[in-house]
Design a protein around this nucleic acid. Sequence first.
DNA 1: GACCAGGCACATC
DNA 2: GATGTGCATGGT
Length: 217
Amino acid sequence: MERVDRLQNLYQRLWEVFGPQGWWPGDSPFEVAVGAILTQNTNWHNVARVIAQLKQTEQLAPLRLMEIGEAELAQILRPVGYYNLKARRLKNFLDFLFFYYQGSVENMAAASLENLRPALLSIKGIGPETADSILLYALEKPTFVVDAYTFRICHRHDLVNDPCSYEDLRQLFMAQLPPEVPLFKEYHALLVRLGKEFCRPKPRCELCPLFGQDFLK
DNA sequence: GACCAGGCACATC
DNA sequence: GATGTGCATGGT
């Protein structure tokens, strides 16, 4: 079976099992972008707590975060882990946002995906997954987000050959799916859902709804 | 107490 | 281009 069919069948199967996921949680594009940086290698639960705290103190705004010193910001970010690193990374993103877009994530959306992606990747602390998350979920640009779950699921079900880079996997999905933002959002969210519940690092879970699915062979 | 979580930069080979 | 390491808290 062609890979294109497998990826489309996989999506259908995930949709049947889990239904719509409604990602990404966030009241504004800026909040989504902040969440993308804070959730790097971190449980979302911890990120949600910090975001709630920032909201409660009315600090979840570009200008307010620009005004906070990096050391103070780091203390606020403690619960997400890597807090010194993430304070620096968030500051780098804010610098970019104010230098090019008057501090407005909404303003970024006027630029093209082709221009924005390399620009985001040039920010120290924004790697491919964070860039694609911001582009897809905050800016509604049709780029596929690959994460640790995507790698694990694709490898465990032999959807990809072994050495497989982030870009390999992203291109695989993008080449074989229509470039539709709602589809890309939902697909990634469904992969995360599957990964969290069934595709754990160990042990391999035989209750996985993909286990024994003919279309994966 | 070990293991894991919606990565990334940097050094080294 | 692959591989190893530091960054760090909180949940299971």
